[in-house]
Every structure is written in structure tokens, then in C-alpha cells.
């Protein structure tokens, strides 16, 4: 015991070992449980399957409301989720499928049902409006454009996937 400052006493040594063993036990017990609990955070997102919605030749420049259902798996619960899309061709002939979920607070918007603002999407909850291509009209509540579905054309049929935010635009 020449250097009192640096020598670890027997008691301190025991205390450290005790903390080590206690920590090991707590970790051994809790690690599997915590990993179990946070499983939803670490799950890899599975890309949704594309769903056949309508024939491409039926798509016009006027938005039409189409409902389709997507298979969803929620843990042990499997169900079909009903989704709505407004489908039309834009001026360049590109097919656009808009999700009618208002980006303000999640109400469902409708096409052309407000006589004061023809040819716009209109949200009944807080009066949000979007142009035909889904761009939010400045001065109304929505902060961003309507989300668009991923589209794919195969054998003359239109397939829709997940809805994605458009960002900016």
C-alpha cells in the first residue's frame, strides 16, 4: 500500500466485481426482452405489391375515382385495406394516380365538388384545395401536394403501388 491514491482496496474491487456481475445478469435478462420489444423498429420494410386497378385505355384527362384493395399484414392480422385513387392523364399524356388523403390533417378530398372552385380537389374539413395535378393551392391549409401512387403499366393494365409524397413540386 505504497500509493494510497491509486491502489484499489479490496472493498472497492469487490464492489466493482459486484457491479460487473449485476450488470451481466441484468443485460442477459433484459437484452432478449428489449430486442423483442423493439422488433417493430428494426423490421425491414417490405415493398408493397402492385395492384391491378384499371385498363389504361379507359384513362382520360378527367380524374376518375377508383377504389382498390391492398393485402395488408399487421402481425398475425391479415386484412384487405381499401384505398382510393384519382386517376387521369396529365397534359403530356403521363398517367397520374393521386391519393385523396389531404396533406393537412388526413381528411379525404373530392374532385370538382365545390361549385366556387371548379376543376380542383377540395377538402371538406378545412377547405383545403389542390389543383388538378394535386398541387396545393397557396393560401389554403394543406402544406404540401397530394401524394401520388407508384404506377406501372403492364399488358394494357394500370398497376398501383405505395403512395409517396411528392416533395416540393
Amino acid at each position: 500500500m505504497s500509493n494510497k491514491e491509486h491502489d484499489v482496496t479490496r472493498r472497492q474491487f469487490l464492489n466493482y466485481t459486484l457491479m460487473g456481475v449485476g450488470g451481466f445478469m441484468a443485460a442477459g435478462m433484459l437484452a432478449p426482452m428489449v430486442r423483442f420489444a423493439i422488433d417493430p423498429l428494426l423490421r425491414e420494410e417490405k415493398g408493397g405489391k402492385m395492384v391491378d386497378v384499371m385498363a389504361v385505355k379507359d384513362i382520360t384527362t378527367e380524374p376518375v375515382r377508383k377504389t382498390f384493395s391492398v393485402d395488408r399484414v399487421d402481425g398475425w392480422h391479415k386484412f384487405k385495406e381499401e384505398k382510393i385513387a384519382y386517376i387521369f392523364k396529365d397534359d403530356n399524356g403521363k398517367i397520374i394516380a393521386l391519393s385523396p388523403v389531404c396533406t393537412h390533417l388526413g381528411c379525404t378530398v373530392a374532385w370538382n365538388d365545390d361549385p366556387a372552385h371548379p376543376n380542383q380537389f377540395h377538402c371538406p374539413c378545412h377547405g383545403g384545395r389542390y389543383t388538378k395535378t394535386g398541387i396545393n393551392v397557396p393560401g389554403t391549409p394543406p402544406p404540401e401536394p397530394l401524394h401520388v401512387y407508384e404506377t406501372k403499366v403492364k399488358n394494357g393494365r394500370l398497376y398501383l403501388g405505395e403512395e409517396k409524397p411528392r416533395g416540393g413540386a
Partner: peptide, 21 residues
């Protein structure tokens, strides 16, 4: 009891836990 005896008890506990896991 602390730390001498508890350390021994916890060592037994740690061995038990390993076997159990």
C-alpha cells in the same frame, strides 16, 4: 452482506442465468 456475500450470490445467479438462457 454487501459486497462480499451478495457477490457470491450473484455469481451463482449469473451461472444459473447462463444455463437458463
Amino acid at each position: 452482506f454487501l459486497p462480499n456475500f451478495l457477490l457470491k450470490e450473484w455469481m451463482v445467479g449469473a451461472v444459473f442465468l447462463i444455463g437458463f438462457l
